[in-house]
């Protein structure tokens, strides 16, 4: 689905970015502003409700989701720098609110949700000029960005515009990193085995930076990288949310040199 270039857009920052990765959120907003889009950040936003939804606690998820539904009254696109949270709002809100009094509102919101890279490429047709030094990166696409939002190719298309960024492809590229929200806590052994393989495959590419559309995956993979560096004293790639990476490249920031 594409739409005309909007003059304004809502920005839903996600709780993970709010608390752990605000740089990613700020960069995403700046990228949108750079394209002439007036960004509206409703201050009452908290969380999309996905953690409870995926844990089976639907009433609890709905209560939180309902709080978000009230924030996007104008008929503007809602841009989310995460395939996972966008997937929740776009593909699961309709199920979560089925038969509820605010079902129509949920469908309206779901219909206006865009994952950031999809929005930058498909709606804004963004053009990027690479001001950074040559760098090699690996890309990890979250399962929800790939399968729920269908935006796996958008991150590649954005990186493709950067003249001095070389993408190295890791083995088992499309495989899940093992985060899965509460999965990492409920099935820690399986999750650990998955992230061990994922980090090994990424490190084998020799890329100096890993970029992703999702901070959940970055928390998992990046946490494992940091652990491997600390415990095994091994060199590991830096991690960057795609928004932060792009912002740094077009402004010759730290990721331009591939430094952590």
């Amino acid at each position: 689905m594409t739409m005309q270039r909007p003059e304004a857009a809502y920005f839903f920052g996600t709780c993970l970015i709010d608390l752990f990765y605000p740089d990613a959120g700020v960069s995403a907003v700046q990228l949108l502003q750079r394209e002439g889009v007036r960004v509206i950040f409703p201050p009452d936003q908290t969380c999309c409700g996905q953690p409870a939804w995926n844990s089976g606690y639907r009433d609890e998820a709905r209560k939180v989701a309902r709080t978000q539904l009230a924030l996007f009254d104008k008929p503007l696109p809602i841009v989310i720098p995460s395939g996972s949270c966008a997937g929740m709002m776009k593909t699961h809100y309709p199920a979560l609110f089925r038969g509820e009094p605010d079902e129509d509102r949920a469908l309206d919101v779901a219909g206006r949700v865009y994952e950031l890279t999809g929005f930058l490429v498909d709606v804004l047709d963004i053009r990027l000029q690479d001001l950074g030094a040559p760098v090699t990166v690996a890309v990890h696409t979250s399962c929800s960005a790939r399968r729920e939002m269908g935006v796996a190719d958008k991150i590649e298309s954005l990186l493709g515009q950067l003249a001095r960024v070389t993408v190295h492809e890791q083995a088992y590229k499309t495989e899940c990193c093992g985060f899965g929200g509460t999965f990492a806590v409920k099935e820690p052994e399986i999750s650990a085995a998955m992230v061990a393989d994922k980090t090994a495959h990424i490190r084998a590419t020799g890329a100096s930076c890993l970029v992703s559309q999702d901070c959940g995956c970055l928390m998992n993979i990046g946490g494992a990288f940091a652990f491997q560096q600390r415990e095994q004293n091994q060199p590991v790639p830096a991690i960057r949310h795609i928004a932060e990476f792009l912002w740094e490249r077009v402004n010759a920031g730290p990721a331009a040199t591939g430094e952590a």
Partner: peptide, 23 residues
């Protein structure tokens, strides 16, 4: 953090939230 930090470091909270930064 239990099982999480058996193979990963603990996630680091930011100094300021995105809400504060954007404000």
């Amino acid at each position: 953090l239990g099982a999480w930090t058996r193979v990963r470091t603990a996630p680091a909270l930011a100094a300021q939230t995105l809400h504060e930064r954007l404000k």
